[in-house]
Design a protein around this nucleic acid. Structure first.
Lengths: 157, 157
DNA sequence: GATCATAATGAGAGTAAGTATCATTCGCAC
DNA sequence: GTGCGAATGATACTTACTCTCATTATGATC
């Protein structure tokens, strides 16, 4: 298990709840018990999770509510949806609740791990993307840079 | 409509068919009439397309066969599947049938446009990704660098 | 703390992208 | 031309996700 900046970049639980509450309030959403438990399930995972992951980790949560609330959290900028091609979408905290990072996506098992690149490269990427976006009349919101391959568990087969 | 290197980076139709035929043969697949028409529909689009795009453009093709054949083409390295979160997956020719590029993904309408970055930046990205992949015991196959935002048609709203 | 308007919940029905099935047809080798 | 295995395509199926709606929780106001 590689130790990444992931662990360090997390807010404390109380800070996280405060930040989430603020963002939900800004969109006129309530921070209910179910949403709090959902946020804690994602926090506890420490990596991108699918709906089944969440329901297993927090059996009291109804799948339909989890789907609905993941949508609410995404709309409020609390959570990002990662659609990497597997059966399920993955969810993780959005910036700046989790600092800017990218993903190692395993083409075999579908697992997703967070990785961090140095700021200089990120800046170059943003500059280049801004340039090509400008040419296309495209308004950038965020970029995603994922590495697809085989995770340590699945081997290089 | 922005003019990109997209148009220039395409092979001629006959070269494309030859390359596809080779790749299919290498995987013991036949290059049938239906697969040929599918390839031509993707070529004619000149950008990533969904299954409905293909079926509309080539009404003679049966959806079930198109799905199956897109799978065959993906397995043979002819086509890449892009899952960007919309309702449908997008398909386009894989490298080197189409030269290495990235995507502008519209968060409103879901459309995907190809863009090209300079080789120096690509090299830096690859170096950095190789480094973090190595630390995680991850075997890289390819990277995807997509810019999410709003396309010229959807505005900055 | 009680009341109330409104939002959230959750069980289940519904939707639709994509896959599996299988009898028929096609393509290639001989 | 014959024959065998692969490809086709209509259809049934699977399943991730969404919608519905009666019930319940939430937070503001008194």
């Amino acid at each position: 298990m590689t130790r990444s900046r992931n662990t360090d970049s997390r807010l404390s639980t109380s800070d996280l709840h405060a930040a989430v509450s603020l963002r939900l309030a800004h969109h006129d959403y309530r921070y209910t018990q179910g949403r709090r438990r959902l946020v804690e399930a994602i926090l506890a995972a420490g990596q991108p999770v699918t709906l089944p992951d969440i329901v297993v980790a927090a059996p009291g949560l109804a799948p339909s509510s989890v789907y609905r609330n993941l949508d609410v959290l995404e709309r409020s900028g609390v959570v990002n949806r990662i659609t990497a091609g597997g059966d399920h979408a993955y969810f993780e905290f959005a910036e700046p609740l989790l600092s800017h990072h990218h993903h190692l996506v395993c083409v075999d098992c579908g697992s997703i791990e967070d990785v961090y690149l140095d700021d200089e490269l990120e800046a170059s990427v943003d500059r280049s993307l801004a340039e090509v976006a400008g040419r296309a009349g495209f308004t950038p919101l965020r970029h995603s840079l994922d590495l697809h391959g085989r995770c340590a568990g699945c081997g290089s087969g």
